[in-house]
Design a protein around this nucleic acid. Structure first.
Length: 360
DNA sequence: AAGACGGGGAA
DNA sequence: TTCCCAGTCTT
């Protein structure tokens, strides 16, 4: 395939027009680059920015991160999503601290072997920190290459991934891989954007196949359509004295390692009134005496593959029922709870003051 | 090869 | 609402 000076034009754009400041830009410290790349996986720069700064401030080096308590790190990650990233972050920090004496590995093979580090992240670290010739292939690169070279191969297929990776490797500026990788991602984020790309003023529009064919908004091609699962969560917030019932989500599901209240899940909408609550508490938990303080209106949150809806029901108890004294249950004060990470779905309820009691 | 995994911003 | 984001891991 004719490259038509893609690399030269991209680097020219970078030199003349790229003005995109980011806290990790130009960073050579592999710990900080690694941290930023993990935070930025499937996450917008604007969303990850403040998280990166908080992490660097709290854990200036990998040793301090390795020695931190799990809950403390998860609390700092709270709200960022994809929480296995946080789990792997801690695992890898401790792994490097123990096995590499705190020194970040400097070869691609060793970097890509780290938990939570795939081909993209390894290429980013290797090129930014060690000037190794590995091309990053992220969402920006798929989009730019498919448009500039007019490639309609679906990017979410094995064949597509292979084709774009080969092209990306071919285009890479082997003399300055770090600069090139930074440039192509900045270009994708600021010019060759997913929606409303700035084609008119684009320095590459003369060589861009999609621009010439007016197919920019058709590329890149994705084959799969994602289906969404509907779930309904009824959260009972049990309060006994100053303590609230809380448990850790350990099952293989969303929000693993985060905390929550007592959960009843149903496949579809479930409405509660005082009588249903009384029956449920009596039959399932052996609770005789209680006071329903609040039944919220439906709360809702969109996730990528799921749509979560549900109620929060605040119930005041006179004492802690035996059935809620299991091994995985915690009864905590508000202050203790404040140190724990919760899903955004729950935090949005906790922070919302406009919860209005349902009529009952 | 397909599915799972969050949350938020923009259109 | 839908799409997509500096992807990776599991099944």
């Amino acid at each position: 395939m004719q490259d038509a000076g893609f690399e030269r034009l991209l680097m020219q754009w970078n030199k003349e027009q790229n003005d995109r400041p980011m806290p990790w830009k130009g960073e050579k410290n592999p710990y900080k680059v690694w941290l930023s790349e993990i935070i930025l996986q499937q996450t917008r720069v604007e969303q990850g920015w403040a998280y990166y700064e908080r992490f660097v401030k709290k854990y200036p080096d990998i040793r301090l991160l390795a020695k931190a308590k799990d809950e403390e790190v998860f609390k700092l990650w709270e709200g960022l999503g994809y929480y296995t990233r946080c789990k792997n972050l801690l695992h890898t920090a401790r792994f490097i601290n123990k096995n590499y004496k705190g020194k970040f590995p400097s070869t691609y093979e060793k970097i890509v072997a780290l938990k939570g580090v795939g081909p993209y992240t390894a290429a980013a670290i290797a090129s930014f920190c060690f000037d190794l010739p590995y091309a990053v292939v992220d969402g920006n690169v798929f989009r730019i290459l498919s448009r500039v070279f007019g490639i309609a191969t679906p990017i979410d297929t094995t064949e597509g991934k292979k084709q774009f990776k080969e092209l990306a490797d071919k285009m890479l500026d082997k003399k300055s891989p770090g600069l090139y990788n930074q440039a192509i991602m900045d270009f994708g984020a600021t010019v060759c954007k997913p929606m409303l790309p700035l084609c008119a003023g684009c320095m590459l529009n003369k060589i861009c196949k999609a621009y010439q064919a007016a197919t920019v908004n058709k590329l890149p091609v994705k084959e799969k359509v994602l289906s969404k699962k509907q779930r309904w969560f009824s959260y009972f917030i049990f309060e006994a004295g100053e303590k609230t019932f809380v448990r850790k989500r350990t099952e293989k599901d969303i929000w693993q390692n985060l905390f929550e209240f007592y959960l009843i899940e149903s496949a579809s909408h479930r409405e509660w009134d005082k009588k249903m609550i009384a029956d449920f508490l009596k039959q399932q938990l052996g609770i005789d005496s209680h006071e329903v303080k609040l039944i919220t209106t439906a709360a809702s949150q969109q996730l990528t593959h799921q749509h979560i809806k549900g109620h929060f029901i605040v119930v005041k108890l006179n004492n802690i029922p035996p059935k809620l004294k299991t091994k995985d249950s915690l009864w905590l004060s508000a202050q203790e709870m404040a140190h724990l990470p919760f899903p955004a779905f729950i935090n949005q309820h906790l922070e919302t003051k406009n919860v209005q009691p349902a009529l009952f």
